[in-house]
């Protein structure tokens, strides 16, 4: 059973690109276009091993999403990677204090995304 990763971004093309490159690496990918939808998916899928979210999204921001995830008893310890803009480094700090595990500057190469996930995802059964 491949690891399930949830990706959240308001841009469908970014979502497509991420889904494509992660699936190529053998991950099972769930996607959401906003934070609210992401929370729903998290609620329905207890087997998600990693969450990747954009920060700037209409509605609930990525940072708020991280805070919500950290408060949810069921996914409290899930690794979360936020996609940040190198022009606003303060977002990294905010995300970190909200409980983000790591971050990745946008735009990124698909390999970098995979590398970061490899680094922090929970290894099931260990």
């Amino acid at each position: 059973m491949p690891d399930k990763i949830l990706i959240v971004d308001d841009s469908p093309s970014t979502l497509m690109l991420m889904k494509f490159s992660l699936e190529k690496k053998g991950y099972n990918v769930e996607k959401a276009q906003n934070a609210e939808e992401a929370l729903e998916i998290i609620g329905e899928n207890s087997d998600i091993v990693c969450l990747i979210t954009d920060i700037n999204m209409p509605g609930m921001s990525g940072i708020e999403l991280v805070e919500k995830v950290r408060k949810n008893l069921y996914c409290k310890f899930m690794p979360v990677i936020v996609l940040t803009n190198p022009d606003s480094p303060e977002n990294i700090k905010k995300a970190r204090s909200a409980g983000a595990t790591g971050w990745l500057d946008k735009p990124f190469k698909p390999e970098d995304l995979v590398k970061v996930i490899e680094k922090i995802r929970k290894r099931p059964g260990k």
Binding site: R70, K76, F77, M78, P79, V80, R96, G99, A100, T101, K119, I120, K122, R123, K126
Partner: peptide, 14 residues
């Protein structure tokens, strides 16, 4: 460390 979704074991394992 657990609260930001990290597990030190992964580092040690690596």
């Amino acid at each position: 460390i657990f609260e930001i979704g990290l597990d030190p074991y992964t580092n040690i394992e690596e």
